[in-house]
Write a protein that binds this DNA or RNA. Sequence first.
DNA 1: GTGGTCTAGACCACG
DNA 2: GTGGTCTAGACCACC
Lengths: 131, 131, 131, 131
Amino acid sequence: MILLDYKDRRPIYEQIVEKLKDLMICGVLEQDSQLPSVRSLATDLSINPNTIQRAYMELERRGFIYSVKGRGSFVADTTSILALKTSELKNKLGDWVEEAKRAGIKEDKAHSWLVEEWINEGTRSGGGVRE
Amino acid sequence: MILLDYKDRRPIYEQIVEKLKDLMICGVLEQDSQLPSVRSLATDLSINPNTIQRAYMELERRGFIYSVKGRGSFVADTTSILALKTSELKNKLGDWVEEAKRAGIKEDKAHSWLVEEWINEGTRSGGGVRE
Amino acid sequence: MILLDYKDRRPIYEQIVEKLKDLMICGVLEQDSQLPSVRSLATDLSINPNTIQRAYMELERRGFIYSVKGRGSFVADTTSILALKTSELKNKLGDWVEEAKRAGIKEDKAHSWLVEEWINEGTRSGGGVRE
Amino acid sequence: MILLDYKDRRPIYEQIVEKLKDLMICGVLEQDSQLPSVRSLATDLSINPNTIQRAYMELERRGFIYSVKGRGSFVADTTSILALKTSELKNKLGDWVEEAKRAGIKEDKAHSWLVEEWINEGTRSGGGVRE
DNA sequence: GTGGTCTAGACCACG
DNA sequence: GTGGTCTAGACCACC
């Protein structure tokens, strides 16, 4: 379900956080359903349980999951998860706009790029450009 | 000319790279004009010369500047610089689109956000999303 | 009669302790009336009997109930229960005051907050501060 | 500067977080001043550096400090720190009020307790009542 | 069995 | 030197 990329500069635990966040948003992981246990996911990915623990801690901090000692970790309210994600995305676009403006990009150019990129179905390698 | 933000999580050398890139794109630093020497910029910013060295190395690797041993570092062909920057920006937008699609954002929603964010003149603090 | 909140970080047995304490103070559970048996309450809440056992043990330790081997558990003297609860509350306020003082809060500020918070009827979500 | 209480049920890293937060609020640690390094504080308290690391991470997350790789950790903007702390305290008082209401405490009673507890100068043992 | 905390020691990126 | 990440293995609280 999760594939780690060791060439990626981002820490392992962050990759896990992002991937699980995506799975929750896409609806693969349903509300209040149980996540794999810290230990089992660790052995599945052949990494240390502490790394998973850290990822889960981060997800709980951001309100995506809730953990119950002795029982497990569970997916939080999915509607609020979607709201969180949407707000994140809008912020990211705002950052991009700011950068594009500084580089002298015009608004209509940006719109035409947006159209163009929207068509590209899975053309890119995946996971972000390391410029 | 350059202001460092130590609260920024990005490494210092990366901040310098970005800032110099911006200055070249905006036309403040003209083609073939000489960049400040490693040592002088280091003392100006009161940081370690190694850090400047690393920034210049990075800029040369990406094709934004060229260095001549014993003479200094110079701004590369600005048209190609602009092309590089433009391509970077487009890639970033592509990454964003991919992420937005995964989150179920519709294309017209994205366009309306783009319009909205384009209006916001300097509303955001600057430097990246602390999600 | 009791609703468990698995999202709450506090252990289940502690939630039960608190809830039963509240019910005794409010007078829903009268003095010397019998509490539900460990097994029946466990099946009602669909949790492990051990957890109920632990909650009852805790309540007896604190003097809120008394157990008779082979007969069941019973509500203790409600006046002393109220006294216990009152003393607990006063201690908690004392802790708060100490913390507020350290933070430089003035006494009249605290009083005005108290007035303000007293008006808020059920505004807060319940269960503790996620600071 | 920091005293750990191993009898305290709270984790070590949380004690450190609270203590440092207090020191920043009281003004002992001034804005932008450097905190002891992860390693030095660890040896000072004779605990593992990872524990300090976690405390610092938590403080950064909450906006009390900022960390720069290779340079150190520093006290964030103290005015916003005070605002954060004030909001936390008000929330805690709100929780207390809710509990007091449930226990049938009257508002004037609460005010008289507040006055009373405010007078008690350091009477209590320190650190919170384990009921 | 579960999550949570702590220790010990390693390696990396940064300055 | 600094902070940050990861591993390995231990112990605790809870269910």
